[in-house]
Computed example of a mutant assay.
Amino acid sequence: MAAPALPTVVLIHGAFADASGWQAVAAGLRERGYPVLAPANPLRGVAHDAAYVKDVVSTIEGDVVLVGHSYGGCVITNASSDSPNVRALVYIAAFAPDEGETLLESFALGGGTSELGERLVRRPYPGAPEGDADGYIDLAAFHQLFCADVPTDVAAFMAVGQRGFALSCLSTPSGVPGWRTIPSWYLVAADDATIPPEAERFMAKRAGAQTVEVASSHVAMISKPAETIELIVAAAAG
């Protein structure tokens, strides 16, 4: 009898980043035989981005494991609530908001703090709703806030190559969370200076996620790819 097909792993990046951050994780998963997709998260709005990911998932035959980093966790939370082929959710130092909760509120869960809000640079973008703008992390603070445990030269390019993130996403209430009905896994980044680790632990517990914790900055998928891969594989097998 043929072995059942492995699920497709869909990797969703977060704000201030692009899909290249998944390079090591995607390579490791593919070496293990997993089909992988790492689409570009539009970063234009919670509902818009979730609809885009949901459409991507709808084109995939068979089971899907949705993996989200940072803001990507909010996107997979919303995209998965009525996607019938999503069998597991994996959060990598990510937001896992509840229904009606905003990301600004999520930052404060568990009593942690972050300097991110004080380090954002606003830039206009064409077609932005009134009052909205793209947010970028101040170049002078990027390494320390976002990726303190990656080499300086790598962090420098990540900083200048960061993608703008519609700041309205921070105040948009989240929808019905997929983690209410879909088994979830969570990697807490204990040294995260972007999303407070206290908030990550709170969200992981609330979602009933199987949780591991690693000593890493916000970009655990870059600085701790082996641990990230193991968690995704566990979710795929779970």
Score class of each variant (00 low, 15 high):
197 P>K: 07
162 Q>N: 00
23 Q>W: 12
8 T>G: 02
43 L>Q: 09
100 G>Q: 10
160 V>H: 13
167 L>T: 13
210 Q>E: 15
161 G>F: 03
198 E>N: 13
181 T>L: 07
177 P>H: 06
36 V>P: 05
57 V>T: 03
220 A>R: 06
175 G>D: 12
229 I>F: 07
166 A>V: 01
136 Y>R: 05
152 T>G: 01
188 V>Q: 03
15 A>Q: 07
87 R>T: 15
119 R>Q: 15
16 F>M: 05
238 G>W: 11
184 S>A: 15
54 K>N: 14
203 M>G: 03
124 P>E: 12
81 S>M: 06
225 P>K: 07
197 P>W: 11
41 N>G: 02
81 S>K: 03
42 P>Q: 07
124 P>W: 14
103 L>R: 00
29 L>R: 00
72 G>R: 04
75 V>K: 11
7 P>L: 04
59 T>D: 13
42 P>D: 04
212 V>M: 01
149 D>Y: 13
215 A>F: 12
167 L>V: 14
219 V>R: 02
43 L>K: 02
116 L>S: 08
192 D>C: 09
88 A>W: 01
194 T>D: 12
77 T>P: 08
126 P>Q: 12
23 Q>P: 06
42 P>K: 03
73 G>H: 11
175 G>K: 03
80 S>V: 06
222 I>H: 05
29 L>H: 07
189 A>L: 07
7 P>E: 02
70 S>M: 00
76 I>N: 02
103 L>D: 05
143 H>C: 03
31 E>N: 14
211 T>E: 06
205 K>Y: 00
216 S>N: 02
44 R>I: 12
142 F>G: 04
233 V>I: 14
160 V>T: 15
118 E>V: 05
203 M>V: 03
170 L>H: 04
150 V>E: 00
55 D>H: 02
155 A>F: 01
151 P>D: 15
8 T>F: 08
186 Y>K: 07
114 S>E: 10
156 A>F: 09
228 T>Q: 10
87 R>L: 07
45 G>C: 11
138 D>Q: 08
96 A>G: 08
25 V>H: 10
26 A>K: 14
187 L>Q: 13
61 E>P: 09
69 H>A: 12
219 V>M: 14
86 V>F: 11
169 C>V: 11
129 P>G: 04
172 T>A: 12
13 H>Y: 06
217 S>I: 02
51 A>T: 08
141 A>E: 01
23 Q>D: 15
203 M>H: 08
111 G>V: 11
93 A>T: 09
196 P>C: 06
